[in-house]
C-alpha cells in the first residue's frame, strides 16, 4: 500500500468537500487513483478537462505513483 496525499483546488475542492486528504491505496498510477476516488461521485466523471500534477510538476495520467507522492487533480484553468 502507498500513502498518497491528494490536493484539491477551486471547484474540485468544493466538489470533494476538502482541500486535501491522505489515503492508503494500491493504485499503480494517477489514473487508477482518480478512478478509485471517483467511485464515490465526489469527482467529475469526465477527467478529459482535468490536468494532473505530482510533487508540484505536471505529469501524465499514466505516471506511476510512489508512497509519499503529493497528487493534485486540477480543474480547467481560468487565470487572466
Amino acid at each position: 500500500m502507498k500513502e498518497i496525499t491528494i490536493h484539491y483546488y477551486a471547484s474540485l475542492r468544493d466538489l470533494r468537500g476538502c482541500a486535501q486528504e491522505t489515503l492508503s491505496t494500491e493504485a499503480e498510477s494517477a489514473l487508477q487513483l482518480f478512478d478509485e476516488l471517483q467511485r464515490d461521485q465526489k469527482l467529475p466523471s469526465n477527467r478529459s478537462h482535468l490536468k494532473l500534477a505530482i510533487n508540484d510538476e505536471f505529469q501524465a495520467w499514466e505516471t506511476s505513483l510512489r508512497s509519499g507522492d503529493r497528487v493534485a487533480f486540477l480543474p480547467p484553468f481560468a487565470g487572466g
Binding site: 471547484s11 466523471s45 480543474p75 480547467p76 481560468a78
Partner: peptide, 16 residues
C-alpha cells in the same frame, strides 16, 4: 460560479 466549470461533465457541473 467557478469559471470554465461547464466543460466538466454534466453530472459534476450540476452539483456546482
Amino acid at each position: 460560479h467557478w469559471i470554465r466549470m461547464n466543460v466538466l461533465s454534466a453530472t459534476a457541473s450540476e452539483r456546482f
